[in-house]
């Protein structure tokens, strides 16, 4: 049940809306064009809820968490 989750950005789908960086700044930053920089793919336990919200908020469905 307690498998680690990793973040994955579908780079073709991503249009740099930037909502993920607002909701998960601990793991995701933005480059100068507004596209996400995933600093750490592994989602720590304490950020799991935030990661879920960031995934749900992406208007392009480009952010995924893989178990």
């Amino acid at each position: 049940m307690n498998r680690t989750r990793t973040l994955r950005v579908d780079r073709i789908a991503c249009t740099g809306e930037g909502l993920c960086a607002e909701l998960l700044p601990e793991l995701i930053g933005l480059d100068e064009w507004g596209y996400p920089i995933v600093r750490d793919r592994t989602v720590p336990e304490r950020l799991r809820g935030h990661a879920r919200r960031a995934v749900a908020a992406c208007p392009r469905l480009a952010l995924h968490t893989d178990a």
């Binding site: 809306e17 909502l19 208007p59």
Partner: peptide
């Protein structure tokens, strides 16, 4: 959709 970014609220809050 138009990427409105008011200063006082986050864009995710609009969503």
């Amino acid at each position: 959709g138009g990427r409105a970014a008011p200063r006082s609220v986050g864009r995710f809050e609009i969503g």
